[in-house]
Structures are given as structure tokens and as C-alpha cells.
Amino acid sequence: MTFVEVTEDPVTGVSPSPRQRVRETIEQAQAADQAGLDVFGVGEHHRGDFVGSAPAVLLAAAAAKTERIKLTSSVTVLGSEDPVRLWEQFATLDLLSAGRAEIIAGRGSYTESFPLFGYDLKDYADLFREKLDLLLNIRGQNPLTWQGRFRAPLVDADIAPRADGDTIPVWVGVGGSPASAISTGRLGLPMAMALLLGPLTSQVETADLYRMAAADAGHDVKALPISINAHGYVGRTSQGARDTMYPYFAKGMMENNHQRGAGFPLSRSVFDAQASPAAGLLVGSPQEVIDKLLTYREVYGLNRAVIQMGFGGMPQKDHLEAIELLGTEVAPVVRRESESREGAVS
């Protein structure tokens, strides 16, 4: 996945143009598809140092260059979106891609889109709940009659187009809020957890609360997918991967964080600690990333891991090499080992 950030290269001092970053994003999707990966995601931000303000448009361009990979928002800031328009865009993407569209809907940790589109941040939580309800109703029936607080009511509204197949998967992005995990579990929706930095086990409570809430609501917990979204990079060697990722990741954490240009300082020692087996970053050699992904799976019972590689403006050559390694050397082993361990347990 990518947020399509625009960051000054810490080595050359050159900033890529928005046009370059858009073209690189489509090339990344194409490389991921060819390498055999399962999903490619574009995140949503509404700031000059990101180009991903319209994920559906970028994913539509990626649909034309790919054949099998699923195409998802990661995430859609649903509280500042119109669910009707969002559905129309992703249903169109679903038609273009022959049923490969997904939506990961989130509250949004970056909140610049709320004032931009005329929403009050005091309604942050209520906006998300209401708009998620509307999105799920749109997905579930057509025509639709619906009423809420934040938009005009719908009366026998014909909302088109419809999905290419039966439905469009809607995941909920959860950053660690217990209330978000519980509400997602009650709805019986797939949960996409985010783990930026910290211990690998830092989201265990989130997963437990989600599953308990789902069970209490009568959902089949075993049928509910969970994913982890984490930063990472795959290199030929462990040291080489860290050396390649660190300067760009540190630059991105400082320049593209919530407080633009005054973000999170990350020393090399802290970065290396976060790359250790017990911490969250998925960075290292193929075998090292395989081992950590399998640990993630054991700890959380994961169905999917989405890795944000290249954050901070990593050169495209290095980014594409990492995608190739992830698809050809990491993913096949993780799939095989996961199936083997699941078979042994059952």
C-alpha cells in the first residue's frame, strides 16, 4: 500500500513531482500484480505533500494495468466522504476491474479533510457511525430509503452502478481504539488494524475486543477476517534492507507525519529496535520478514498483512525490487506455512 506522499529525497535533496509519484504508484500496482501479491492499496490524504486525495481514481488507473490483484482504499476517510458518491466510485472501479474493488473505511487519523469539506470535528465519531451505516445500506439494497443527521434523506433512491459481483467488501480500519474494535465486531465487518511502531503484540487487546464483541453479537468469529497494516521493506539481506529503508522512513516520519514538517524524529537506534523480532516493523531479508509475518499470524490469527513500503520517497528502483521479493520469495512461503499450520491445528 502507499499514501503517495511527496518527500524530499534525503540523499539527493530532490523532491519528486506529483506527476512522477502518480506514475510510480501505477507502476507499483503493476509490479505487485505481476509478482503474485493479493492486494494493492492507496491511502487517502488531503494535503500538498500527498497525491492520494482521490484513491478511486488512482485505483481505476491501476485496474487497467493489472489483471488479478485486489484494489483497495487504505483507508477511505469515511467521516468526510459522501457514502453515495463513494459507492458510485468504487462500484465503477469494481466494474473496471472485474470485481476486484474493496473499501477500507476509517475514521481518519489525519483530519484535514473535515474542515476542507465543511464538517465539524466535534461530530467526528458520529459522522463515521452514520456514514458507515449509510454505506452498508447502499451496499445491501437498491433502491434505498434512508434518513440521518448529516445529509438529506434518501427516498427510493436508485444508487448506481451496482457491484460487478454480489458485493464489494467493506473493511473497517482500526488504529487501536477499543470502542472502534467493539463497534466493528458488533457489525460483523472485517477489521484492518494499523500498527505503526511499538511492540508486535500492541494490538492484541484490539483483536480480542473485536472478536468478543462479534461473538456477543452472534457473528461467526472464525469467518471474520483480520488484517494488519504495517510499515516495512524487504531486501536481499537483513542489514541491506535496514540501511535502504531507514533514511527514507525517518524522512517521511518527520516530513509527512500529522504535523507537517514537524513530525516524529526517529533515530537509527530506535528504528533498529523497531525492526527486531518483537517489534512491529516488517523489515529485513525475505526469511526475516517471513518469520515475522508468521509470528503476526500466530499472535493475531491474521488473514492478511498489508505492508506500506517505500514511505518517505524511497527511489522507485528499490521499491520495485522490494515488491518483487515480497511477491516471489515471501508471500508463497507465508501462504504455504499458514496452510500447513492451519491444517495441523484442525
Rank of each mutant, 00 (worst) to 15 (best):
T2G: 06
F3V: 10
V11I: 12
G13P: 09
R21W: 12
G41S: 04
V51G: 05
S53A: 11
V57K: 08
A61G: 10
T66N: 14
E67S: 15
R68P: 04
R68Y: 10
I69E: 14
L78I: 00
F90W: 06
T92D: 02
A105T: 03
F117Y: 02
D120P: 01
L134H: 01
G140D: 07
N142H: 08
N142D: 06
A152E: 07
D156A: 15
I159D: 10
A160D: 15
P161R: 13
I168W: 08
A179D: 07
S183E: 15
L197V: 13
S202R: 11
T206L: 02
A207R: 04
M212Q: 07
A213D: 03
D216V: 14
A217N: 01
H219W: 03
G235S: 08
A241V: 13
P247R: 02
P265S: 06
S267H: 03
Q274N: 12
A279M: 15
L281R: 12
L294G: 08
T295N: 13
Y296S: 13
Y296L: 10
E298F: 12
I307S: 00
I307T: 03
G310H: 00
G313M: 04
G313V: 11
D318S: 07
I323N: 04
L326Y: 07
G327N: 07
V333A: 10
E339V: 07
S340L: 11
V345S: 10
